[in-house]
Design a protein around this nucleic acid. Sequence first.
DNA 1: GCCGTTTTCGGCCCGACTGTTTTCAGTCG
Length: 570
Amino acid sequence: MNNKQVASVLNQLADMMEVNGDNPFKVNAYRRAARAVENSRASLTELDGGPEALSGVGKGTASVIKEILETGSCTPLEELRQKLPEGLPELLQIPGMGPKTVHAVYHQLGVTDLEALEQALKEKRLRSLSGFGPKKEEKILEGIRRYRERPDRMLLGHVLPVAEEILKRLREHPAVEQAETAGSLRRMKETVKDLDFVVATRHPEQVADAIVSMPEVTRVINHGDTKVSVMFHQGFEIQVDIRLVSPEQFVAALVHFTGSKEHNVRLRQRAKEFGWKVSEYGIYDVKRDEVFTFADEKEVYQKLQLPYVIPEMREDRGELDVEEEHPERIRLEDYRGDLHMHTRWSDGAHSIREMALAAEERGYEYIAITDHSQSLKVASGLTADDLRRQREEIARVNEEVDGITVLAGIEMDILPGGELDFPDEVLVELDLVIASIHSAFQQDQETMTKRILQAMENPHVHIIAHPTGRLIHRRDPYAVDMHRIFQAAKETGTVLELNANPHRLDLNDYWLKLAREEYGVDFTINTDAHSTEGMGVIPLGIATARRGWLEADHVINTYSLDRLLARLKS
DNA sequence: GCCGTTTTCGGCCCGACTGTTTTCAGTCG
């Protein structure tokens, strides 16, 4: 059992306790313990002093954790599962249904699942409970409808262009003094549910009117002076929430609506230590009856005597628990070249020269051409002979195009048995060798892990691409022991990829942070572009690296060409 | 259930909104 799995059990337990009507503070204690376990740098089994060494884990939660670790089961959770119907926790997912309501309909009406709840609503039985009326029945019915039709969270890479367009229009409005994205969009989470914005204005009604009359708006959900919510359609439909505040309140509102929720809770707890309250309107000194406002977000953290935290890191993953200021995280400006891309030689859309020119236009110093290898027939993989001829073309492009260096590489398949698609004498001729999995995704963990380790142990392999193979919403990661992969990466010097494709973002923020902190792994951020436009997703990769706390020096794409070549040779 | 540079007991983040109330409980972000 790893930390993530233990945290998941603790969260399930908290859900069941909540439905059971347990003390909400007790429920929260379990949620906090789950977070502490998930965010712990060290694995639970190797923690000095046991789980209780973690802040938020005490005697009670530690004994539960120990049981999960030692036996794989969790007695309090089993007991609650015996006691309560299994359909009950799902009811918490319905908008408008909280623990109190679930508890009431179960105990007083015998509602055990979603179907029974709908039946009770049809028969108008909820209004018989004290505190319930026709309006509340109506609200829950609407909640069930929304729950059934809930769209998946959308890929950040898909919604980003729309968000940028909306932000541009907001900033162009004459009554708008400042505008910024907020929420998970600003934190650059891999998926988002809606698009949040904060706007500073002295004329909120004018801005609100302008928003609801945009041509792409298909439905107005909320049209007030402080908050406007609309459904926005541009190729797909997504909810857009815009908060309108006075210019003095803008910075505090931006912090508040950027979140995350958990990060905000920590800020407020901190403020309490000084006798202050944090809200979207500023920091309020209760004793002196005084509100502090701020010129920028750095001042907010300074006021609370906390290190400044970039939006991408505001997830309560330990970012507020450091003594000193955070080091600078990697920025787009640090990025010098893309090391994973395809051309017409395999399944790409453009030629080597076209890719080189596009990269030069982006200001890159180098790129690597890494087409697929012979076994990947669906992508017209290259034979050793093709590779030799491709190298000649790369040499010609290097002569003809100034200002950029094109490296000759390969994205080579790791075959199901763990052997590589080319022998060493072919690989040694190349500047850069990426190895990756494109077949037999269903292998068991031991086979898959050994298969990747075997590739890493080959001295000619520099990089493992998209190491978990997950496709967001489409394919789970393959079964692989990531800790062994990280350990091997450290030992062999193999670089692990953060693939910036919006569907992949693989490694993700969680693994990046863990691999760097616990194992000191080096990374490469690449777009895996199959066309010149494909290189445009690099900001997603940089943002994900920032979410994983990476600094420029942890990423080989920030190296000078000389340093990069030396690293590859070593 | 957890925690302590005011605390080992008494708190536990904050404000808006809604629907049910007649002063407040529940839910949400």
